[in-house]
Design a protein around this nucleic acid. Structure first.
Lengths: 206, 206, 206, 206
DNA sequence: CATGAATGAGTGTTCATTCAT
DNA sequence: TATGAATGAACACTCATTCAT
């Protein structure tokens, strides 16, 4: 039973099983025996590919982080020079993140649920992740401010607020709605709120 | 040793000890023996006041939720009728929440760290909490929209975005800065972002 | 089942059970579950009294060492001044050690069997034990040499040889003979060999 | 990697690796994976040459035993007839044993450390080994006694004492001194102690 | 009310051994 | 012969919970 697989495949198989189990039970309630049971391999096999339960979790987090950070960073080498470019850029970022999250839905759901309480090592990684996301947003805001595209605000606070906004919207969708939402519409709303604010205005330039 | 205390006091004493231990170790790594050790009572005494480790955690969550929901809901019976009233109201809410969080800093930090991964029961309570907070925000937005104070947006998405914004700012302060920030300034920034948006405008009313 | 006992008694009970199990199975093959099973207590109880399997073994070794070292050292404050006194002193030492060993027969048998292979920590203790025994013997020989009672020999080598002699005799008795031998006769033979040697002599003064 | 070797060589290679690992870690802490790692062959290869971890240990013990027993037995066909011949014979035996031990130092050190605790099967072999060594010594003593060369002593006890003496001296050297001692001088001291005893005598014949 | 010794089910991890290639 | 991935039984240790005093 459980034929010999290429190293990479067996690892993926175990990662998939771990993701399923962690999602269903939570990290600390998840048992290694559940993971191997789901993967259909023996207990010992797990430890050929991961040195501990913690390590699978961290490996899954790498997957998650890679997907989201990549999406956040990707095609943004040109600093926007006009309000329209800024809006387009923010829209693109937001869309990319939401898409990445829904493309890896179980993974994203897992790390929106499991937080810094699960494991000290993971807590550190999560903190780093949030810092890095905030740094990226802050940097974008500084560019936009330098170009006179946005009004003067504390860029750190604004960056955190921006990220918090899509995080909570995302979390809500991931945890509460079984079907993926219209990501483009969602992104548009979020960006519009961030750029234009809520206030009703006589002339809504845009 | 450990004099007989009024039931209420002994319970509080255990809750305080539990808060300290959960904060230091995280929920699942925290041991009941640590809690009673810190409280200076015997192992068995714990179970005179709580039926399980989970129950203390839930009791602490009640404290947390009471503080935040109370702050969020408090003096808001009059629907704002002008932009200035709306801004004042939102400012007041945001301030109240941040103040409550910093007034119960360890509690707030605990529940910003520990998330839905810790315990299924707690996960449910947290979900409810977020729903209730979102409901309150959404309701406020609907009123404001009805009064024509804000432009037409999806109130649920906007509510989530608003809450996510202060949540992340708050989390960042709680976890990264050892000293309490200037809550009023912070609230002002957050509300300004939410109402006015980021876009630089020729005439910045207000 | 298994009533509450005085701390000291429960500890002794576990030490006795551990001794029996270690003797029967050997240290590394012995299971903690065997020990608690034999003691009639629950698995967890073991860890209320010892922090690890290793620790019981070391505690047993303390018992062993205390008994033997005490026997070796005890009533020997006066340096012998005549051949007869020297012989009497050595006889007394040898008797005392053998008696102590047979008085704690299972303990002695255990540590004659288990050697430095069992556990690194125990190996260190055993090494120390042998050194200390050799030191005591060496010291006695130096005194005797200073008093002109023995011929000039390397005292370290002689001390090791003396100790090795009774150790092997003892080990042989412990492992091969189910009943205790005549300790006095044995001691007499050993000491006679050590003092007089094997050589047949015309006049055997003594 | 790891070319096909003659069966004998591959076996030796594994034995050498096993000796190194057992010496470094002790029998029970040693892992088969360490042994094959050190030998540079695959895990499965081990089981082509040995049926179990125990078996390598026993094979090493055969090496050890062969060396020592051979040394002990070797050129001793003529019963000594004079005190000088007896002394020469004992000296030769003792030298031979010590030389053999230091010629196979790691092997000897291993089996002086690992004792009867390591493995039941090995314990039996060790017991046999000691019996055989004692038998050989006893037989020599009986011959010497029959020839009137030694005074009447219990030959078993004397044999054990004699063997215990060089065993402990040997063990001490193996474990405590990194460099080989002067085996001839050592043997001379040991034999002198055994034949002449410690007592200072007016006329020291010899 | 309070104690704290006792419980025992539960779990991560190890490692000798096997066997399909 | 040689490989090394896979196996799975085994075991030390933990800790929430109970209950006799």
């Amino acid at each position: 039973m459980a034929k010999v697989l290429a190293v990479h495949d067996r690892r993926e198989q175990l990662l998939d099983a771990a993701l399923a189990v962690f999602s269903a039970e939570g990290y600390s309630a998840a048992k290694v025996s559940d993971i191997v049971g789901r993967a259909g391999v023996a207990q010992g096999t797990f430890y050929l590919y991961f040195s501990s339960k913690q390590e699978v979790m961290l490996a899954l987090f790498e997957r998650f982080q890679a997907a989201l950070i990549e999406a956040r960073r990707a095609p943004d080498q040109v600093a926007p020079a006009t309000p329209a470019q800024l809006r387009a850029a923010m829209l693109e970022k937001t869309r990319a993140i939401l898409r990445a999250a829904f493309a890896h839905r179980p993974l994203a759901a897992l790390f929106m649920k499991e937080a810094m309480g699960a494991d000290p090592e993971l807590a550190g990684r999560l903190r780093e992740f949030h810092q890095r996301m905030a740094d990226l947003s802050e940097q974008g805001l500084r560019q936009a401010a330098a170009a006179g595209l946005i009004r003067p605000v504390d860029p750190r606070v604004a960056a955190l607020a921006i990220n918090g906004a899509w995080e909570r919207v995302l979390t809500d969708c991931l945890l509460c709605s079984p079907t993926d939402p219209d990501v483009d519409a969602l992104a548009e709303q979020i960006v519009s709120l961030q750029l234009d604010g809520l206030i009703a205005r006589p002339t809504q330039e845009r």
